[in-house]
Design a protein around this nucleic acid. Structure first.
Length: 791
DNA sequence: ATAGGGTTAG
């Protein structure tokens, strides 16, 4: 074939830079090299553009490097392409390389560069680009300026956006709508509409992009009603909604829980044939899930013809939102089985779903599998997995997530930091929690509440109060949650007067109406101080129905202070509200036991048994042994010792017959209410679990307790057990070994060198949060050498 | 070869 004809064909291919296929591009490339006309930059740039349009960026870059000298046109071509395909980091990298190559960019590529800055939200770099344009005397036309307005809007710098707008010599429709959308994003409905209308008056008719920008802007600022109204107005003005406007308005409809409008829009979607649009399908699923329409979520997904990851993710999170955790997990596994390329959003949604629904171990396992699958967690994943670490006291995992966040440089993220505080507090590491808190560059109300809640959980009321005051000095207004933490801290530390004052100032000074959880705190606060009548009168003055937590707080206090009459009132309410909660029956029978009213106590126990609630007679054992303990402690108001001892024997026979071991949970009650030892961190029910497991596991040759949840300082808790039970105990928590004997204890952290504790290597093993090993029992072989060392 | 709008995870 003669060369001229081939060259002609080649040029024809190169001219079709958007439609030519990749193989044609390769052919053309080969031909350029063969014929030597690759020295003509015009052809090479065409080829470069062809590669760029096929997103063959490595080919494009190598072509760029093959130029004999720096070529402005070639650089610009690739920069446009990078921005076009959302490869913003590459855009900026190439832009800076231009300067290194001694090239001076012209104003034409600035919009692409600025758009990349918007996409990455890199304010400082964008400002530099802007400054470069101004100082180097480039002509910033309305194209450049409009992209600058959008950039500043995106970076939440509305003032700067406005400055650019004000200085414009010639404005066009894009500049007006970009500014209006900026006001919409800020939630300034009035200004947004004003600018939008002003542009219209000057003859700049909004197009669909302008309308959609407004809808998206209102959505962003939470002005959902305005977003929906804008959508409506758009139709009134004769504009037909396109895919973008529908996928923008659907989240707003979902947040408004307006199923009526949602169904109308769904109908519109079907009528207009938008059902194939990925974003719309995802948004529809999301809308139905927010409106709590579980069947419709799956229906929309199944009716969809395409397989789209976004829609799959929306499905998973939608099912999760509606509490269908197992279904979400099954579908997730199904997707995996289909070898679908799940992304970070899919994994994060699934992790969030598990950790929000009590499936902590599953969440941790997913976090590990995610990394095995090669998907990198991001700053959203971390706050989803951390609560799971905290719940099972998996400190090692939490620390690993901490290190991971530091390495990936999203530790400054306010969500990451707040979740970290919460995790450390839950794992008993209140000091580390405080360090995380102190190092946060930006805090929000969640961060402050996390710190306060941590202190409350650890019974450190003074510190919690201090944080509360610091919070206000910093200008952060407390919210409902802040007061819950504050009041519970006061309640647990017996700061009755302070707690009462905060409770009263809540609505008076802060305009926050007390909710049921605050009433539960204040009842418990007064109750602990023995002010039972006062607590009851607060309950009676409540403007809404008290719930089980409130009555439960009263009943617990009545048990502590042996107040039978109020205890019976509270118990009666509780039996109605939670007929199947054994705790209430136990509390009441406790009070009867303390008064020596054995018949009444038996009656309550029989009701409980009648309901099939708890066959373990251990609960009665607690009551009696508790009384014995009190008697020995010198409470002479109790009935006769002999009577109690008889009952005790009777019960213990009964227990043995049923094959139960004595339950030592009563110890906690003594410590918490009487000795005011806050080593137990105010979570007696969790510690009761400790004792419960201890006893139920007593028959096993190795006392290993899996997934034991200790809230607070494990060391102190076990020390307490060792002292009380007068025995030697070895304890392994996630990273330390503790040895308790005769009130003395020694710690070793050799466990950290135990390969079993290294992250993700054997997750099933390392989810053991605490292991208790008593001396009478065998030590597993592979740990024996360590054991010798310690002994 | 240039600018402005969309879904799903905390």
């Amino acid at each position: 074939m003669p060369v001229p004809r081939q060259a002609e064909k080649l040029l024809h291919i190169l001219n079709k830079t958007t439609t030519a296929s990749l193989s044609q591009a390769h052919q053309a490339h080969a031909h350029l090299l063969k014929t030597g006309i690759s020295s003509v930059p015009r052809h090479t740039t065409k080829l470069l553009s062809l590669y760029a349009n096929h997103q063959c960026f490595s080919d494009a870059e190598s072509l760029l490097n093959s130029f004999s000298g720096p070529d402005l046109f070639a650089f610009s071509t690739l920069i446009y392409a990078y921005t076009k395909f959302n490869e913003f980091k590459r855009t900026l990298k190439l832009f800076s390389e231009m300067f290194c190559d001694g090239l001076f960019p012209d104003a034409h590529i600035l919009p692409s560069v600025i758009k990349a800055c918007s996409g990455l939200s890199v304010l400082e770099i964008g400002k530099q680009v802007h400054g470069f344009g101004l100082t180097c005397g480039l002509t910033l036309d309305s194209f450049v300026e409009s992209s600058l307005i959008h950039f500043y809007v995106k970076c939440n710098e509305l003032v700067d956006a406005h400055k650019v707008f004000d200085n414009m010599v010639e404005r066009d429709m894009v500049s007006w709508s970009a500014l209006a959308a900026g006001y919409a994003r800020k939630g300034d409905v009035v200004s947004a509409k004003k600018v939008f209308e002003e542009g219209k008056k000057l003859g700049f008719e909004p197009n669909s992009v302008s309308w959609n920008g407004m809808i998206a802007g209102f959505n962003q600022s939470g002005c959902f009603v305005d977003a929906v109204l804008m959508f409506h107005e758009m139709h009134l003005c004769g504009f037909k909604s396109d895919g973008t406007s529908i996928s923008s308005v659907l989240p707003a409809i979902g947040d408004l829980r307006d199923l009526y409008i949602g169904i109308q829009v769904h109908g519109h979607v079907i009528k207009m044939g938008f059902g194939v649009d990925k974003c719309i399908v995802s948004a529809l699923i999301d809308m139905y899930s927010k409106c709590e329409c579980a069947p419709e979520i799956s229906q929309v997904f199944e009716e969809m013809d395409l397989v789209d990851l976004g829609a799959c993710n929306a499905l998973i999170s939608g099912l999760s939102r509606n509490g269908l955790v197992d279904k979400a997990l099954n579908i997730f596994k199904e997707f995996q089985g289909q070898r679908m390329e799940l992304n970070v959003v899919s994994w994060t949604s699934m992790i969030a779903c598990c950790s929000q629904h009590g499936k902590d171990i599953e969440a941790l396992e997913l976090f590990r599998s995610m990394q095995v699958a090669g998907v990198k967690p991001n700053s959203v994943t971390i706050p989803c997995v951390l609560p799971a670490c905290g719940n099972v006291a998996a400190l090692t995992h939490g620390k690993a997530a901490h290190c991971f966040s530091l390495r990936r440089e999203f530790f400054d993220d306010v969500y990451v930091g707040s979740a970290m505080i919460d995790m450390y507090a839950n794992c008993g590491q209140i000091q580390i929690a405080r360090c995380c808190f102190d190092r946060m560059p930006v805090r929000n109300v969640v961060s402050w509440n996390a710190m306060m809640g941590g202190y409350a959980m650890h019974g450190m009321a003074k510190e919690a109060i201090q944080i509360f005051h610091q919070m206000q000095q910093s200008g952060q207004k407390p919210d409902i949650v802040s007061f819950t933490s504050l009041l519970s801290a006061c309640s647990q530390s017996g700061l009755t007067d302070e707690g009462h004052r905060y409770f009263e100032s809540m609505s008076r000074d802060y305009g926050i109406e007390a909710r049921v959880e605050h009433y539960a705190c204040i009842v418990s606060l007064l109750g602990r101080a023995g002010k039972l009548e006062e607590a009851y009168s607060i309950i009676r003055k409540m403007s809404f129905e008290p719930d089980a937590c409130v009555w439960g707080a009263l009943l617990s206090s009545c048990r502590v202070h042996h107040n039978l009459s109020l205890g019976e009132v509270a118990a009666k309410k509780l039996f109605e509200l939670e007929p199947h909660n054994p705790g209430n029956y136990i509390l009441l029978s406790n009070i009867y036991a303390s008064k020596g009213k054995w018949n009444e106590m038996d009656k309550v126990r029989n009701i409980m048994r009648g309901k099939g609630l708890r066959k373990n007679p251990g609960c009665s054992w607690i009551e009696v042994k508790y009384k014995v303990h009190m008697l020995l402690a010198g409470d002479k108001s109790l009935p006769q010792m002999a009577q109690i001892m008889n009952k005790l024997n009777e019960l213990s026979m009964e227990m043995k017959k049923s094959g139960y071991l004595p339950h030592t949970g009563f110890v906690l009650q003594d410590v918490e209410e009487q000795e005011k030892e806050h080593i137990l961190c105010g979570h007696s029910e969790k510690l009761a679990v400790v004792f419960g497991i201890l006893n139920t596991n007593a028959g096993s040759p190795l006392r290993v307790i899996k997934n034991l949840r200790i809230c607070g300082d494990c060391h102190a808790v076990i020390k307490f057990i060792a002292t009380f039970e007068k025995r030697e105990i070895y304890v392994r928590d996630t990273n330390r070994f503790h040895h308790f004997k005769d009130g003395e204890c020694s710690c070793g952290d050799y466990w950290t060198s135990d390969p079993r504790t290294s992250l993700f290597e054997s997750l099933n093993e390392s989810t053991l949060s605490v292991e208790l090993v008593t001396k009478d029992f065998l030590i597993p072989e592979h740990l024996a050498s360590n054991y010798q060392l310690i002994c």
